[in-house]
């Protein structure tokens, strides 16, 4: 699997929820050779792609552009790997009772 197989996929759970705008990984430490494990997928109800790197960072300026990008990604959420039931080409099915988590990065 490659990452572009996931990005932009439509996510259902059972109804249409949005598009995969990004994929979150966890790296246990930054020393050489550590594996980066998939943690979850970020779902954006309106926007098909991540844009300009604003929506999850603390950067708020220049404000009109930052605000516009945040608005495009309003209602975004993260779903963990364990809540993914089925992967298909361009389509992801979530398990019943999946949990929505915040898309913000620490």
């Amino acid at each position: 699997m490659i990452i572009t197989d996931l990005l932009g996929s439509r996510v259902f759970g059972p109804d249409f929820l949005g598009f995969v705008s990004d994929v979150r990984f966890f790296l246990e430490s930054e020393t050489e050779g550590q594996s980066a494990r998939l943690y979850g997928i970020l779902i954006s109800p309106h926007a098909r792609s991540s844009s300009l790197g604003f929506e999850r960072s603390g950067v708020r300026s220049p404000w009109p552009i930052a605000a516009l990008v945040r608005w495009r990604h309003r209602g975004s959420f993260l779903v963990r790997w364990s809540d993914i039931e089925r992967l298909e080409v361009g389509r992801i099915q979530l398990r019943p009772g999946f949990e929505r988590a915040s898309p913000e990065l620490p």
Partner: peptide, 28 residues
Amino acid sequence: YLPILIVANDPEYMGEHVNGQALNGIAL
């Protein structure tokens, strides 16, 4: 010019040297 403005505001790249508000205003 749009990406230049955005990265000039990004502390990951710029640290303390991010744009000031006045410069952002003119740039916009």
